[in-house]
Amino acid sequence: MDLALQLLFTGIGIGAVYALVALGFVLIFRATNVVNFAQGEFSMVAAYLMVVAVEAGLPYWAAFIVALLGMALVGVVFNLGVYYPLRHRTYLPVIIATIGASILLANSVLAIYGPQPQVLEGWFETPGIQVGPVYLDSQYLLIIGVTICLVIFNFWFFEKTLLGKKLQATSQDKEMASLLGISVSTMIMITFIYSAVLGGLAGILVAPVLFVSIQMGSTIALKAFAATIIGGFGDVAGAIIGGLALGVIETFGAAYISVPYKDGFAFLVLIAFLIFRPQGIFGERVAEKA
């Protein structure tokens, strides 16, 4: 039981990371119908920005803001350079362009900053607390907390604010949105910025746990992508639940079935979902909305 509780905590922690990255996937997909294969690299770039800013002597919070602003800029450049020129083409060229962008981002960082993995200190001084039989890593606690806040924020933002509603309208029907006087290209730009910042946030939060390395983004992104599909593509709540579920499944699968095949569980669950429930956990609801 103690064992299971500890696994559950770690599973949720790692799942929350998947969920954050998955959220970025979902937002871009809803706005543009495109899967951004460079989403994981957003996380990696942000973590490096953070390391650079901290090393430059900025206080942690200031470095955090600088890194997120940097990510907003990455989002702008990414939209203008990768998505926007291809917006009238089918999904296939866009997928491949984002794959190219992911190679470009990862290796640019490698070229600039070298291959050494870096250490980024966590937000808290204490590494964690022992609650009964379970050790709670402080960084994972922070990640879980941030995820909860983001769920609430997203709900408020998309359902209650005008900008959020405009974004929703754009993602559901571009022609209709532009007839209503909404600038579709501005909305897409905002989406890319928001999604890059979200991905960056995930990267900065997870860096103290996983260290800062070139590969950190791609490993997380693939799982987050799986989480997105399990949650039902285009569903914000689904992405969160999917991410958490995946983290837990993976951790328990590793503990009780096989450690070396750990990465396989995510994909097996994914294939099972794709075959038996391709609409995802909350798929039904999405269909009704449409």
């Binding site: 064992l3 500890q6 696994l7 770690t10 790692i14 990371v17 746990v209 996983l210 590969q215 490993t219 997380i220 993976e250 951790t251 328990f252 590793a254 503990a255 450690v259 070396p260 095949y261 750990k262 990465d263």
Partner: peptide
């Protein structure tokens, strides 16, 4: 004996198995 796959993000199951 316990194997693990490279680039694992989390070793909790491994640590707990060793503990057990």
């Amino acid at each position: 004996d316990q194997g693990y796959a490279n680039q694992s993000q989390d070793f909790t199951p491994v640590v707990l198995a060793i503990k057990q």
